[in-house]
């Protein structure tokens, strides 16, 4: 398990250019917001956590094709399916590495985004907490949708359609935690993660096995 995790993290760490592009995508979405909504600092301060979360969500969606599509294209997916190592464990390592990569990108860009949107300093720790509890859930759900659509060739739009309903609760609780009393929504976020953590890798494993050509 540790060896798998080390491999996946190394693989993500080697693909810095691709993650840099996603990082820029995140910042660009944040930069677009004041142009769409107007530059009043007071309004941006109020909307900042929601805007950052929407940008993070879009970046997460965009990053998902790296999860299984690349493996299917280069043949690694076959190797994973045949392997005597439990498929769910391989998937778990993959999703963990992916979550870490997204988390790193967000942490790196959090300060610039906060400055651009005139965010309160007190919100930053809350926002970080929602990232810790929310990002893995986004990736686990994204893994399910990614596994269901991996056999289809052009799946980006379908992936978004499949995921948006499932992302709504996460978005609601994450943004509420930043804007109001944090304890209750963080608890809900944690519960969603606790529900997904043991089940999602198994669902993904079953989906990959059943949709192989």
């Amino acid at each position: 398990m540790l060896a798998l995790l080390r491999h996946e993290i190394r693989l993500q760490a080697r693909q810095k250019t691709e993650w840099a592009a996603l990082l820029l995508f995140f910042v660009l979405v944040v930069i677009l917001m004041p142009f769409a909504l107007g530059p009043e600092p007071e309004m941006l301060r109020r909307l900042a956590p929601g805007l950052v979360w929407v940008a993070a969500l879009l970046m997460g969606l965009l990053s998902l094709d790296r999860l299984f599509v690349q493996d299917a294209r280069d043949g690694t997916l076959d190797e994973m399916l045949i392997s005597p190592v439990p498929l769910a464990a391989i998937i778990f390592a993959k999703l963990a590495a992916h979550s870490v990569a997204i988390f790193v990108v967000l942490v790196v860009m959090l300060l610039p985004a906060a400055l651009l949107l005139n965010m309160d300093v007190e919100v930053l720790p809350k926002l970080l907490a929602t990232f810790v509890l929310g990002i893995p859930s986004l990736v686990l759900l994204g893994g399910i949708a990614g596994a269901l659509t991996v056999a289809l060739h052009r799946n980006a739009a379908l992936l978004t359609l499949l995921l948006v309903p499932f992302y709504i609760p996460i978005l609601i609780f994450a943004v509420s935690a930043c804007t109001g009393d944090a304890a209750q929504p963080l608890l809900f976020l944690g519960s969603i993660l606790a529900l997904l953590l043991p089940t999602a890798p198994l669902i993904i494993a079953a989906s990959l096995r059943h949709t192989q050509e």
Partner: peptide, 22 residues
């Protein structure tokens, strides 16, 4: 989402399984 996923597969059996999981 279900309708589009179900009809995206060339192979009926795989489409049926994927959309059932969804």
């Amino acid at each position: 989402g279900y309708i589009i996923l179900r009809h995206s597969f060339d192979d009926d059996e795989r489409g049926a399984k994927a959309s059932a999981i969804l």
